[in-house]
């Protein structure tokens, strides 16, 4: 009990010291107004980053490639060190990995019973991308803009290009399922849902962007940067990472299953 009190006291003192130091360091103000900052968070027209030293791209593209690199490195480490040691009765880590794979695989099987091999792999990749990509903004990785200014890398899907990319790609995957399952009829079935790529893209964009805007708004004012980000930044980000992952993967699986389901031909009874 005494140790706990001592630890709490040390924490409180440290927080107060950091707060005092940050206030004493002074606030020189931001170079851009809150309107400009939020407008740039949406449009990415000002702060861009050179991609491979060439074309200037939105920071979210760099975030996207970083997320991919992180995920692939993690996957490779798991493949090399963990999977060969997998046992019939799983441990905690094995259980988490199997649960993640089984979650998307089962989702694909349940929603698309006729054709689900590729769908499972796609929604696993897309789900991992959305989940890790959304949490990625919590890392606060820095990059340098074309103007030489430092910028915090945002969540990949807070960029409309990334959201459109994922939404349209998901629609193309659904279309491929329709073609594989029903041929030309599948194309027709998929094209009936013409609003799907737009709705999926802008749902993702809207959800991620709202999170980004709230975070941007909070962080714009220095005094709001204490305590509040724990709730705004961590909890909300975690919550909508889970929700958006579930929504996009579920929608993709659902529509994929619908368009890939073989059409039942109704036999016309011969009139005697």
């Amino acid at each position: 009990m005494g140790k706990h009190k001592k630890g709490l006291a040390v924490c409180a003192v440290a927080i107060l010291l950091l707060l005092a130091a940050s206030l004493l360091a002074g606030y020189h103000g931001r170079a851009e107004s809150v309107q400009e900052a939020m407008r740039d968070a949406v449009l990415h027209s000002e702060n861009q980053i050179p991609f491979l030293g060439g074309k200037a791209v939105n920071p979210a593209l760099i975030s996207a490639f970083t997320v991919t690199a992180i995920l692939l490195v993690l996957a490779a480490l798991i493949r090399i060190f963990a999977i060969p040691r997998f046992k019939l009765i799983p441990g905690k880590f094995q259980l988490v990995i199997e649960e993640a794979v089984g979650l998307f695989d089962n989702m694909a099987k349940q929603n698309s019973p006729h054709r689900n091999g590729f769908l499972g792999a796609y929604i696993f990749g897309a789900g991992a991308y959305i989940f890790v990509g959304t949490l990625f903004e919590l890392l606060g990785l820095q990059a340098t803009t074309t103007h030489g200014q430092p910028i915090t890398l945002p969540a990949p899907l807070s960029d409309v290009n990334a959201a459109i990319g994922l939404g349209v790609l998901s629609y193309l995957v659904i279309l491929s399922g329709g073609i594989a399952g029903n041929g030309a009829g599948g194309i027709g079935k998929t094209l009936k849902e013409f609003s799907l790529p737009i709705s999926m893209s802008f749902r993702l964009f809207g959800a991620l962007l709202s999170g980004l805007l709230v975070t941007e708004l909070v962080y714009y004012y220095l005094h709001l940067s204490f305590v509040l980000p724990v709730i705004v930044g961590v909890l909300f980000t975690l919550l909508h990472a889970i929700i958006q992952t579930y929504v996009l993967t579920m929608l993709t699986a659902l529509y994929y299953g619908e368009v890939s389901e073989p059409a039942h031909k109704v036999k016309k009874a011969k009139a005697n």
């Binding site: 996207a64 490639f65 996957a75 990995i97 794979v101 792999a121 990949p156 409309v160 459109i164």
Partner: peptide, 27 residues
């Protein structure tokens, strides 16, 4: 909305690498 087709293609490339990589390495 500053939509850039080139960047969308780059996102597709990124997603293709990610989905393919995750499929073969982990899934």
């Amino acid at each position: 909305l500053n939509i850039d087709w080139q960047q969308i293609l780059l996102h597709w490339m990124n997603l293709a690498i990610l989905v393919g990589g995750l499929y073969f390495i982990l899934f």
